[in-house]
């Protein structure tokens, strides 16, 4: 997500222009709602209310129907996301090899809970269920990179530095 992340209160016209190439391919197709939402979120990084309205308009669904579907799935975000995303695996193997403790410590040091984003949009903390590399449990992923155990120390240092800044 190198693209600029829109802040809250984006202007609808600007958004409409930016999303038009995506929306035009799904116009009138209610069945394509999920891939459409995925593409819009891929473009913006999250789903602002204005974007949801545009999606509703394009597909011919009501806003309630669109939000009803979007809110059902864990992958759709209704808040802007941080520039960095830290994900802690809370899958079974990671759970029994100490994920809860890591999560607790991250929450404490970052000052945000799981599923939250720091107010300065620097970082988002999330949990996921099994990333499929249980052998490395407990797994922490920073921006799609899986941390090996010996990298955990670097993570703590990075967090500490961030706090000083």
């Amino acid at each position: 997500m190198g693209e600029p992340v829109p802040e809250r209160g984006v202007r609808t016209e600007e958004l409409a222009t930016r999303l038009e190439p995506i929306l035009s391919r799904y116009r009138g197709q209610a069945g394509g709602l999920i891939p459409l939402l995925q593409e819009v979120q891929g473009e913006l990084g999250w789903l602002p209310e204005e974007a949801l309205r545009l999606v509703a308009e394009a597909t011919g669904l009501t806003l309630a129907q669109v939000v009803g579907v979007a809110s059902f799935y864990a992958q759709f975000y209704f808040q802007p996301r941080g520039r960095h995303v830290i994900r802690v695996c809370t899958g079974t193997a990671c759970h029994i090899r100490g994920a809860p403790k890591i999560l607790e410590r991250l929450e404490e040091e970052l000052g945000i809970g799981a599923g939250e984003t720091a107010p300065d949009l620097s970082v988002t903390l999330e949990t996921v269920n099994c990333l499929g590399c249980c052998a490395l449990a407990p797994v922490v992923v920073v921006d799609e990179r899986v941390l090996k155990k010996r990298d955990h120390k670097k993570l703590w240092e990075w967090i500490r530095k961030r706090r000083v800044e």
Binding site: L33, F72, Y73
Partner: peptide, 26 residues
Amino acid sequence: IKRGAGAFVCGESTALMYSIEGKRGM
């Protein structure tokens, strides 16, 4: 290919089909 959007229950067969149809996966 259809990419899931993050819901365990969508592994259930009827829910999965609703999800492909663009609905809530119930």
